[in-house]
Design a binder for these strands. Structure first.
Lengths: 253, 253
DNA sequence: GAGATTTTGAGTCAAGGTGACCTTTAGCTA
DNA sequence: TAGCTAAAGGTCACCTTGACTCAAAATCTC
């Protein structure tokens, strides 16, 4: 915050957008909602949904608005959190545009109605997108950051449950973890942990009778937000923490 | 990202600033660098250092520049990471200004030379600021968020070591944890954890002879950035994770 | 110089979490 | 009925943790 008057010439105004990384789990895969760009630049390339922040709007409000415009889903049913800002001056060839990325997690969402901008929107498996498709702008980087954030959130918070439609079984929840983390978990140990965690799962008393196998008890999301103790990815592989700008194990102090 | 041309009238340009929460440990207390505002609005009130993002500059670069302008310290000696964006349309009475807050951690820094803007800059104990002083703009909120982030980072990463000037002892490092977390730790258990953590501490071979007591071995920061296993605040009290915008099912995460 | 003081550093022990694995239960189908 | 599947519960060895004790190496006090 400087004391310089707002319209001073030195500091050029900047256009600000929000971009959404919307994750859901469908068909045994973590999927992300991508739109196909209908204009230059990056015409025809897949991109994250998003748009300009309007006057008098907070970033959160802009994200919620874009969310409902793109998916037709009431944002209150989803988990939505700010990821971080991306600000490379060259990130958008049209000019100086900073974007604030949001991470949205929700249960199997409806096939997106084409957004208000009539752009085609599709669910795509995250795995295939991150390793093959190149997205418009710096959206590939944003997607990778969002994926790592989501994976890490599953360890320390109870967000995994928002991927499930209520009521759900412990098996449903485990399936979420396996799909997001990309490896399978011991069913017995998983049950022990999530049922022992305080206020994570609330039994409804009901049961679900699968096509085959013993019926499973049904649960609803409990009030707990934090998972104590955390449910760590045991392998503990390739975990990157929040990203420092100056390399953190720094050259001498 | 919409396809609308950049200079469309609908989306008003927005001014973007970076604000810095610079923490250091001096005199047995966690301290934050505050400036005294020399202009309206909030004339005379303490505020976080910061300033407008310039043309062609990334947010990270702007943060590094403000850091050196305010403290005269080379940013490469510090840990610097993006905290989050704050965007309430009413947060700045001068108009639409979004700020991206950064968290900077460093060893006992020099008494800040008055910034280039000739504003008075002072180290203030965080404890007294958060519970009494009201800062300009929404800086009180930013400071609280930054404090919680720093406390949580000490659990899962090795950043605590950047508060120490090398070489340092295990006691020095424990002192950092105690000051930032606000409670004392068992010296013996603390030593066991940090010395067993892979690549956290590298012994220099030297010793430091204190005024009284047994001499202590000296260490340098190791290459590890993540603390495995994490060093959890046992009390596990008042921990809040990253903040969702729409309450992820129920209030407060 | 002897003993008290202080801080480092090492070790013990019980409690609890974790991963690997086994067993039983409750439904289905052949 | 036998066989299959997934749920649910249990066992056990291993490890981490917190609380605690004890020895080591320096200074300070008398």
């Amino acid at each position: 915050m400087t004391e310089t008057p707002l319209r001073a010439s030195k500091h050029a105004p900047i256009f600000v957008t929000v971009d959404l990384v919307i994750f859901t789990v469908r068909q045994d895969a973590l999927q992300v909602l991508l739109i196909e760009r209908g204009n230059e630049p990056y015409f025809g390339l897949p991109a994250l949904p998003g748009g300009y922040v309007r006057e008098g709007e907070t970033l959160d409000q802009a994200a919620l608005r874009e969310l409902s415009e793109e998916t037709g889903v009431d944002g209150r049913r989803l988990h939505l959190e700010q990821l971080r800002a991306y600000s490379d001056p060259e990130r958008d060839p049209r000019g100086r545009i900073i974007t604030v990325a949001y991470l949205a997690l929700g249960p199997d969402l409806p096939q997106p109605v084409a957004g208000t901008d009539a752009r085609a929107a599709h669910w795509m498996p995250v795995a295939s997108v991150v390793e093959s498709a190149s997205l418009a702008f710096d959206h590939s980087v944003i997607l990778r950051d969002a994926l790592e954030r989501a994976r890490s959130q599953l360890e320390y918070t109870t967000v995994a449950a928002v991927f499930c439609t209520e009521p759900f079984t412990v098996g449903d929840l485990r399936h979420i973890y396996e799909v997001v983390w990309g490896f399978s978990l011991d069913p017995s140990n998983f049950r022990r942990k999530v049922t022992h965690a305080e206020s994570f799962l609330v039994p409804t008393g009901g049961r679900r009778y699968p096509d085959v196998g013993r019926p499973a008890a049904l649960y609803r999301r409990g009030p707990a937000r934090l998972l104590v103790p955390p449910l760590l990815r045991s392998g503990d592989v390739t975990r990157s923490s929040s990203m420092p700008v100056a390399p953190f194990p720094l050259p001498s102090v």
